[in-house]
Amino acid sequence: DPAEAESAEAPSAEEEAEVDADADYRRRLRKYTKELKELPGQWYIIQCYSGYENKVKTNLDMRAQTLEVEDSIFDVVVPIEQVIENKDGKKKLVKRKLLPGYVLVRMELNDAAWSVVRDTPGVTSFVGNEGNATPVKHRDVAKFLLPKEGAASAGEAAANAAEGEQVISMPEQEAAKKYAHDYVVGEAVTILSGPFASVSATISEIDEETGKMVGLVSIFGRETPVELSPTEIERIN
């Protein structure tokens, strides 16, 4: 029956919603990338002690003013994501550093500004080729900093900004949904969506209750854990 065949092939409302959300995310990402390109300076990544990201942001802002290089260091940001975690049967919204151990800095790279950043307490190095500070592509920065659309209240946004944190946007997913899958720890996968799209990961943990997984991703030469769901990854054949 042609009608039955057509209905079998037609995407479900849920699939269509996912496609729409992904298309909207890509559209906003393109627009935000263009906005970033119009700002002065280049984006660099600095490595710091894990857990000290916000302190490094505060220290660096203060040092830039005190040492009078604020005309070269424009922006210091700690990107975070908000995720729903299931703890003791209760859903809880938690903030998680998207790049633990790293801080993003928009700056003009000159000797004075480089020294101010490099000598900031908690900073270990610039990320780059052979130890040289290397600018990050605007599109890559946009993936980490694209603001979440209408998700945070004005109060939350102000609190996050005060801490130097920026809540990023990712295609919507039901974080607490139960996922059935047959992935195993140690398996290599490719991430399909979000800030780490097209990046390879190795599954390191699987939550048997929710089906959520943690994968290790190589970011700037260091393995960093990121949360994954079966709907956003595929096996590497």
Rank of each mutant, 00 (worst) to 15 (best):
D1E: 09
A3R: 10
A5N: 15
A5F: 12
E6A: 10
E14Y: 11
E15K: 10
E16Y: 03
D22E: 13
A23T: 13
A23V: 08
A23S: 10
D24R: 15
Y25Q: 05
R26T: 06
L29W: 03
R30W: 08
K31E: 15
Y32S: 06
E38C: 11
P40S: 10
Q42R: 15
Q47Y: 11
S50C: 07
G51R: 13
N54H: 03
K57H: 09
R63K: 10
A64H: 02
Q65E: 10
T66F: 05
V69W: 06
V69Y: 05
E70F: 04
S72M: 01
V76I: 03
V76G: 00
V77H: 00
V77M: 00
I80A: 01
I80T: 03
I80H: 01
I84K: 01
E85N: 02
N86P: 00
G89T: 05
K91S: 12
K92C: 01
V94I: 12
L99F: 07
P100F: 12
P100I: 15
V105Y: 00
V105H: 00
M107N: 02
N110L: 07
D111Y: 13
A113D: 05
V117G: 00
D119E: 14
D119L: 13
T124D: 04
T124C: 05
S125F: 07
S125L: 05
S125H: 09
F126S: 02
F126C: 04
G128R: 02
N129W: 09
G131P: 05
T134N: 03
V136L: 12
V141F: 02
V141H: 01
A142K: 02
P147R: 02
E149Y: 04
E149H: 07
E149V: 04
A151Q: 09
A152R: 10
S153Y: 09
S153C: 11
S153K: 10
G155Q: 08
E156G: 01
E156V: 06
E156H: 04
A157D: 12
A157R: 15
A159F: 01
N160E: 15
A162Y: 07
A162W: 05
I168R: 14
M170E: 11
E172H: 14
E172S: 10
A175W: 12
K177D: 07
A180G: 13
E187L: 06
E187C: 04
A188N: 12
T190Q: 13
S193R: 15
P195Y: 04
F196A: 02
S198L: 12
S204Q: 05
D207P: 05
T210S: 10
G211R: 02
K212D: 04
M213C: 04
V214F: 11
L216S: 10
F220W: 08
G221R: 07
R222P: 00
E223T: 13
E223H: 08
E227L: 10
S229Q: 13
E232I: 14
I233Q: 05
I233W: 06
